[in-house]
């Protein structure tokens, strides 16, 4: 018998509550026990896994990389020290390569937030003879 149920029965024995009230309290206790916690969150992921399987050349090849999430965070923090001049040059090179991303607008807090939500992300790309699978574990 658990502690809360015992307390209810003691209150009933002492005459503090009547039988109907005791029954309602016990029913409420059982409901609470059966219902799962609404904001139950999975454990924080430790690694980002990238698995690439390719059979396009006839010979099967596979790449399996496991990157610690802490390494991503450390990389983001180190990247905040990159001087603005270097970011401008990188932007120019990206633009020349046809990639329209402005790195100066990418704030470290935004990347941190992205890393925080990586556990909810799974990427599956499947083609005829190759697959890409990215997930957190």
């Amino acid at each position: 018998m658990n502690e809360q149920r015992r307390q209810i029965l003691e209150m009933l024995a002492e005459g503090k509550i009547n039988a109907d009230e005791a029954e309602r309290l016990i029913a409420a206790l059982e409901r609470d026990r059966e219902a799962p916690a609404p904001t139950q969150r999975k454990g924080t992921p430790k690694y980002l896994r990238v698995v690439v399987d390719d059979r396009s050349d006839g010979e099967p090849s596979k790449v399996n990389v496991r990157v610690p999430i802490q390494l991503l965070r450390a990389g983001v923090r180190l990247a905040t020290l990159v001087p603005p001049r270097a970011i401008d040059r990188a932007n120019d090179e990206l633009e020349r390569a046809g990639v329209g991303i402005d790195l100066s607008k990418l704030k470290p807090e935004q990347i941190e937030e992205l890393i925080d939500h990586l556990d909810e992300m799974t990427i599956d790309v499947e083609e005829a003879d190759s697959t890409l699978h990215v997930f957190c574990e």
Binding site: S61, K62, V63, P68, A74, R77, L78, L81
Partner: peptide, 18 residues
């Protein structure tokens, strides 16, 4: 931050099969 990057390397696993 460089030291932190170095310590965060623990657990890195790279496997390439061909």
């Amino acid at each position: 931050r460089t030291y932190r990057l170095y310590t965060a390397l623990r657990g890195l696993h790279i496997e390439i099969n061909e």
